[in-house]
Design a protein around this nucleic acid. Structure first.
Length: 375
DNA sequence: CGCGTCACGGTTGAT
DNA sequence: GAATCAACCGTGACG
């Protein structure tokens, strides 16, 4: 299972191998970068490897999300039963049809979109393995016989019809044919899985808990809210991407956190004082700091106007605001063309506005903005 | 010296 | 329920 305590890196920072940094830290990294602090300094201050800082900032710049990608799980299948069924149908109607033609038809008929349409080779395989004999038999009946019962209409397709999750990760910057990177596109792999519901529930419960003093939860809410409100479309994914893993993780990190110097304490001030003793700090305590009040509220540096990142100050309210936007996920998952930069408001609702009202700035983040670090 | 990148050892979650 | 697989993670080192 999970180590009760993390490891300590060269900078004296605590981390859990294989697990993402707590969102509070991730948020911190972005915040500091936005304040013009160089990545190398951020790295030292937060005691996070510069590679990690670099990665998080790069992802943030690319996707608008501070959250880690969805860990684990499998990719959604593109060759869903529905798709197979359509392929079969095409093949039956035209036994001489080519795989690429089938592919085109799947797109044309709206069975798939360009993100989840099977490759030609996949189609060939399907034809060979699942349908091959059909084309030679007499068909229309055939499928009723040896075919699995009719599939539920939208097993995966509609769920996965958001922009290619695969294209999403930081590793795949710009999906082909996509001029700009809509934040939704660039989001981390987040195919809705069974989490979908749990995510929501989980998040909500967290939000709810935020009231009862489970302090470690607030950071989640903050960041999460932050991301969502800042980057609209991607937000949902974030939610999705954040998923259990993120939340859990955070919870884990939080466990040991008690009364020790927190990130906030040494990051906080612009002062950037020498770091407190690193290693002996119980792992993650650092992270505990995240408690909203602690690490942000007190600082004078946040833009009065409400820097997006200042969301912590209003984590609860923002969270509540978010709660009021249940449909955001769906909307976001489909609003794949929205770019964060162009800032079409995906959430025209008053609720959305209420949320975003806290952080007007980021919404206008310049599209082409580059490394925060390049300062 | 700063930063992008990548191998590595690790975790996670769907199948 | 265990194994497998493929995704992700942050660190540390290199260029």
């Amino acid at each position: 299972m999970e180590p009760a305590f993390g490891e300590v890196n060269q900078l004296g920072g605590v981390f859990v191998n294989g697990r993402p940094l707590p969102n509070a830290i991730r948020l911190r990294i972005v915040e500091l970068a936005q304040l013009g602090i160089r990545p190398c300094d951020i790295s030292r201050q937060l005691r996070v490897s510069h590679g990690c800082v670099s990665k998080i900032l790069a992802r943030y710049n690319e996707t608008g999300s501070i959250l880690p990608g969805a860990i684990g799980g499998s990719k959604p299948r593109v060759t869903t039963p529905t798709v197979v069924k359509h392929i079969r149908t095409y093949k039956q109607r035209d036994p001489g049809i080519f795989a690429w033609e089938i592919r085109d038809r799947l797109l044309a008929d709206g069975v798939c979109d360009k993100y989840n349409v099977p490759s030609v080779s996949s189609i060939s395989r399907i034809l060979r393995n699942k349908i091959g004999n059909l084309s030679q038999q007499s068909h229309y009946e055939a499928h009723k016989q040896h075919h699995p019962p009719p599939q539920p209409a939208l097993p995966y397709n509609h769920i996965y019809s958001y922009p290619s999750p695969i294209a999403a990760g930081a590793k795949v910057p710009t999906p082909p044919g996509m001029p700009a990177i809509p934040s939704t596109m660039a989001m981390p792999r987040t195919w809705p899985s069974s989490h979908s519901v749990t995510d929501i529930l989980g998040i909500r419960s967290i939000i709810e808990q935020a009231n009862d003093g489970s302090l470690y939860h607030s950071p989640k809410v903050e960041e999460w809210t932050l991301s969502r409100s800042n980057f609209q479309p991607s937000a949902q994914h974030i939610v999705n991407g954040l998923e259990k893993s993120s939340l859990d993780q955070e919870a884990k990190y939080s466990q040991t956190a008690n009364g020790l110097p927190a990130v906030s304490s040494f990051v906080s001030a612009s002062s950037m004082a020498p770091y407190p003793t690193p290693a002996q700090v119980s792992p993650y305590m650092t992270y505990s700091a995240a408690a909203s009040s602690g690490y942000v509220a007190g600082h004078g540096w946040q833009p009065a106007g409400g820097n997006p990142l200042s969301a912590h100050n209003c984590d609860i309210s923002a969270a509540l605001a978010f709660k009021g936007m249940p449909s955001a996920r769906e909307e976001g998952s489909k609003a794949s063309n929205q770019t964060a930069s162009s800032s079409p408001r995906p959430y025209p609702s008053s609720q959305a506005q209420a949320t975003t009202a806290h952080m007007p700035n980021i919404v206008q983040r310049p599209a082409g903005r580059h490394c925060l670090n390049k300062t």
